[in-house]
């Protein structure tokens, strides 16, 4: 029977994954490098900035051993610019995700959280995959490291509203077998929209099941009568099953 948990990740699980993102800290105390399972951490020498995983940064912040430097896209001006882009320039699509760093052979398979999108020298004009989680965590754990935490908080809330409204409006283009372009959508937003969007597609598929069945029967008949269906249709059949 069905699993008790809904499919997909829950918000705490996504926040847990987000804690692997690298952030920049300004240490207040010297700390030798640690050999952790996830790799060695750099030696922290005040006042040199270093990039360490978020969970480690939060720990040091809580012990008052370091300050966290918020990523540039969490600055009020960049958030306001992104918000303006979302509301005025691209009213149906999400703002584009940060550009991937160029790789030597052109086949870059690295994805967040293994890309340094949230360190202090990341791009300021794009929201990374974990923007919502990271922003909320930093605002909660290190509000004193922001210049204007209240304004950042307000802009984050506005951005979230705008983007969730877009996600909901995307239902219009949904189809039983169709795709849905969600470039630039964040991890937490996927979690929030998954149950609803999946439900809509399931419902549409249920309604359209008889038509789908007829189409398949017709194609099979055509094939048996000697017409050769295009290979394209064959692929479709495989997908729909």
């Amino acid at each position: 029977m069905a699993l008790p948990l809904p499919p997909g990740l829950t918000p705490p699980e996504i926040a847990f994954l987000c804690e692997m993102e690298l952030v920049t800290v300004i240490p207040r105390q010297r700390l030798e490098g640690l050999d952790l399972l996830g790799g060695p951490t750099p030696t922290l020498i005040p006042p040199h900035r270093s990039n360490i995983p978020l969970w480690f940064a939060l720990l040091l912040k809580r012990q008052r051993r370091a300050n966290i430097a918020p990523p540039p896209w969490l600055h009020p001006t960049s958030l306001a610019a992104i918000l303006q882009f979302e509301t005025e320039k691209s009213t149906d699509a999400f703002s584009p995700p940060p550009r991937l760093p160029p790789s030597a052979d052109g086949s870059n398979t690295t994805s967040p959280p293994f890309l340094p999108f949230s360190v202090v020298d990341a791009a300021a004009d794009a929201l990374p995959y974990h923007w919502l989680e990271l922003g909320e965590i930093l605002l909660e754990a290190a509000p004193d490291d922001f210049e204007e935490p209240d304004q950042v908080r307000r802009l984050m809330r506005d951005l979230r509203e705008v983007r969730m409204a877009k996600l909901r409006a995307g239902v219009d283009v949904l189809d039983a077998g169709g795709g849905f372009k969600m470039n630039g959508v964040g991890g937490m937003e996927v979690a929030e929209g998954r149950a609803f969007i999946g439900g809509v597609i399931d419902g549409l598929r249920k309604i359209g099941a008889s038509r789908e069945q007829q189409r398949r029967d017709r194609e099979r008949e055509e094939r048996e009568n000697g017409y050769t269906a295009t290979t394209d249709d064959d692929d479709d059949d495989q997908m729909d099953m």
């Binding site: 809904p6 705490p12 909660e140 937490m188 609803f196 419902g203």
Partner: peptide, 19 residues
């Protein structure tokens, strides 16, 4: 569908509140 949409929004909100 309504319940799904409502619950997922609620779980994100409660994550933020809990934090």
């Amino acid at each position: 569908l309504f319940r799904a949409a409502h619950d997922s929004a609620k779980s994100v909100r409660s994550w933020i509140a809990e934090m």
